[in-house]
Design a protein around this nucleic acid. Structure first.
Length: 392
DNA sequence: TCTGGGGTCCTAGGACCC
DNA sequence: TCTGGGGTCCTAGGACCC
């Protein structure tokens, strides 16, 4: 009954900030934030002042006047995180990477080689610390949900094992929002009913629904391919002139279509998202008979969807964000040029692939449809965008 | 002076088909 | 002519996660 816990959740602590402190010894022990206008990551020294990811830079400086801002070294983040994942793979082939800096491991088949799950957790922490120089926290439990909660409780730089007969004792005192899927909205809903802790939730009508994932032994498996590809761009509130729509959507369609083609994929559903000044947002989508991966086709569809969406919401004159997402993805083998007729489709295919080829040699800014002025004005570096991209 | 960009999953209603 | 039920696909919106 009481299975031995064999699921690990390993999570690098304040990852970007820790890398900066590793690269630059004089940053160690000091409050560090990666970013500028927005805090992308904060060191634990900074977190003690209340600085956190997503916070506006001015606000962070207000909370912590000694805060040191550093620009990100995004290639380093990717490289070091990959090295950490390689350490995990030395202990088990069953590694499910769920973001750049965290993963689940199932070590059930490894304990006869390396010792108990707790032992493996300690060894992983030691190796990542000595070989790579980064702190990583590890939670060990029977299920993925419990292991993840345990690793959060172990932070910073700790290890926590939840034995099967100690699960209730561990969970009951914790606040409800440690549970996967309980964010600000659900927490507020519970709070309005006097539910603040897992113990209180367990006594409520929502107990079964909310607590089911904790005992659900979903397997650790390799991450699948992404189900959608998107890009978005936020900007100061502006009137959605045709000029603005065409240039922003053209740029976004370029990013998305380029990624699709790079993986020989295409998608049938195109969704445009518009955020109005005042934070209200709408989506407008269309499913096409044939999958799309051509930049200009995607641009045209997105433009049409945006106009339709705006026409339905004339009460909001200004917008502050546009996004394009393509879903219902299918594999699209690279088409042979000579199989295509002399129509628009083949012309676009040829043009897109010529552009892709130039970019693969000279970089993505070398050539494209979007106006250079706009492309250069993107507020977030391409490298950071790439960190958030999922495997297609 | 109010926060970026990449995703996933769930729900609910409507259209359409059998 | 009115009736029922189930399944699937699509769209819109929202919550959540890293």
């Amino acid at each position: 009954m009481a299975r031995v816990p064999t699921i690990l959740h390993a999570d690098l602590d304040a990852f970007y900030a820790s890398v900066e402190q590793l690269r630059c010894p004089e940053l160690r022990g000091r409050p560090v934030a990666v970013g500028g206008g927005v805090v992308l990551a904060a060191s634990y020294e900074a977190k003690r002042y209340g600085v956190s990811g997503g916070m506006a830079g001015w606000r962070a400086r207000q909370l912590c006047p000694d805060l040191v801002f550093v620009g990100g070294h995004f290639c380093e983040y990717q490289r070091l995180a990959d090295e950490v994942m390689a350490v995990f793979a030395d202990f088990t082939p069953h590694v499910q990477r769920i973001s750049i800096d965290e993963a689940f491991l199932d070590v059930a088949g490894s304990v006869h080689l390396f010792g108990s799950a707790e032992r493996i957790g300690r060894d992983i922490r030691a190796r990542v610390r000595t070989e790579i120089g980064l702190p990583v926290s590890v939670g060990v439990a029977r299920t993925k949900s419990l292991a993840k909660i345990a690793s959060q409780a172990a932070k910073p730089d700790g290890l926590l094992v939840v034995p099967p007969d100690g699960e209730r004792e561990f969970l009951l005192p914790l606040p409800v929002d440690v549970l996967w899927g309980v964010g600000p909205a659900t927490r507020a809903k519970f709070a309005a009913r006097g539910i603040h802790t897992v113990a209180q939730l367990a006594e409520s009508p929502w107990a079964e629904q909310a607590l089911a994932p904790l005992v659900d032994a979903r397997p650790v498996r390799k991450g699948g391919r992404a189900g959608s590809v998107g890009a978005q761009s936020a900007f100061a509130r502006a009137f959605p002139t045709d000029d603005l729509l065409a240039s922003v959507l053209g740029h976004l369609a370029d990013r998305v279509a380029c990624r699709l083609r790079a993986k020989n994929r295409a998608g049938r559903t195109v969704t445009v998202r518009i955020r109005f000044a005042g934070a209200r947002a709408i989506t407008h989508a269309r499913t096409l008979p044939d999958p799309v991966a051509a930049t200009l086709t995607l641009t045209e569809i997105a433009l049409q969807l945006a106009r339709e969406g705006l026409a339905r919401h004339r009460e909001n004159p200004q917008i502050s964000l546009l996004a394009i997402s393509v879903s219902k993805l299918v594999d699209q083998p690279a088409v042979q040029l000579d199989l295509l007729g002399p129509d628009t489709y083949s012309a676009r295919w040829t043009l897109d692939h010529s552009i892709d080829a130039v970019r693969s040699r000279f970089g993505r800014r070398a050539v494209g449809y979007a106006r250079p002025a706009l492309a250069a004005a993107t507020s977030v570096p391409d490298e950071f965008r790439q960190l958030a991209e999922h495997e297609l």
